[in-house]
């Protein structure tokens, strides 16, 4: 608890819940911030308790991103909204090749939300940031009336620095380039769905939520000229490939046989009528590079714990329609289109 002095009475985290006064700017808010947020995120910049954080910039280009996190349920196998909010924003920074440095965190809390759960979420964020060696240096909390939120919403903004003169961008895919995925597809989506109300099933699979910047650093060290990189979160692999196809004005041909999908994820998808290519991931990346670099890149990825199951899954092709296609394991070809609306479990 370096530099943080507790003010006033202890917040009753065990039994208490979020009240409107926690967002009113008064003493209750200060107590909540001190005892729940500051003590968990604890670092010298945050401890200054200014409305902003002031830091020196490193050499290179700065990278910035922001993302809001809303998820139901808040706690799921393998993670919770807290670590997700840290990993997701770090990954968005990392996909440019940059080193993530600082995060801001903004919370919208619903009146009545359990302080115990809030503390769990905050501590999970703190642990995720600590493990990733990234500091949460400024933040905000607001409280909305009961019924006007879903427990907690978190927005994190990230700042990173790109020291090397590299250019990873979704418009750089060229015909002949190879496509690599860093591991099993669909774990996060299935883990979360298994806990949804009205859907509950048991699947021995955990969310893959993880910060990928260290994996990215080893990849760039081995192959500086990675053309594109993206994390297939919402909308899954299919959506990322369609985005890149559009931005680079190319097509894709992927091989169904090579896709790393756990049997349990495939099973859940069969049961619910979903396609694993569209199911969310939170700790995976898709990398596209020159054919000549593919084997080297794949090998360094497979040496990293977060890329152990990395696989080469297809290649970029010339296609004026920007179609993503898949060679099916059955021998035919099919379109892997943009996702239409939300993927809903179906009965027919």
């Amino acid at each position: 608890m370096s530099g943080i002095k507790r003010r006033g009475a202890l917040v009753d985290v065990k039994r208490g819940c979020v009240e409107l006064s926690h967002g009113s700017g008064g003493r209750a808010m200060m107590q909540l911030i001190d005892q729940v947020f500051l003590s968990a995120f604890d670092n010298e910049l945050l401890a200054q308790k200014n409305d902003q954080a002031c830091f020196n910039t490193e050499q290179g280009r700065m990278v910035m991103t922001t993302d809001s996190y809303v998820i139901s349920p808040l706690f799921f196998p393998g993670g919770d909204i807290g670590c997700l909010a840290v990993h997701g924003t770090i990954n968005d920074i990392a996909m440019s090749g940059a080193k993530p440095l600082y995060l801001s965190a903004s919370f919208i809390l619903e009146e009545g939300f359990s302080l115990m759960d809030l503390q769990k979420i905050v501590q999970s964020m703190a642990a995720a940031a600590r493990d990733a060696n990234v500091k949460i240096i400024t933040g905000d909390t607001k409280v909305v009336e009961r019924g006007k939120g879903d427990g907690v919403f978190i927005t994190t903004t990230g700042i990173g620095v790109l020291a090397q003169p590299i250019n990873i961008s979704a418009d750089r895919a060229k015909p002949g380039d190879k496509v690599i995925i860093s591991g099993y597809l669909g774990d996060h989506g299935v883990a979360v769905m298994s806990k949804r109300e009205n859907l509950s099933f048991f699947a021995p699979v955990e969310s893959d939520t993880a910060a990928l910047h260290e994996l990215v650093a080893t990849m760039i060290a081995a192959v500086p000229d990675i053309h594109c990189m993206r994390d297939p979160t919402r909308g899954g692999l299919a959506s990322v490939l369609n985005e890149i196809a559009e931005q680079s004005q190319v097509g894709f041909m992927i091989e169904e046989n090579t896709l790393p999908i756990r049997e349990v994820v495939a099973g859940a998808c069969e049961l619910l009528g979903l396609d694993p290519l569209y199911v969310a991931n939170e700790g995976k990346l898709v990398a596209i590079c020159k054919s000549a670099d593919a084997e080297i890149l794949l090998a360094v990825m497979q040496k990293h714990p977060l890329g152990k199951h990395a696989a080469l899954i297809g290649e970029v092709v010339a296609d004026a329609n920007c179609f993503v296609q898949m060679q099916t394991s059955f021998g035919g070809k099919r379109m892997v289109d943009w996702l239409a609306g939300e993927q809903l479990p179906r009965i027919c």
Binding site: T328, F330, G331, G332, K333, R334
Partner: peptide, 9 residues
């Protein structure tokens, strides 16, 4: 039929 490309066969 479409998912597996049966008409092609």
């Amino acid at each position: 039929i479409h998912r597996y490309g049966i008409p092609d066969l």
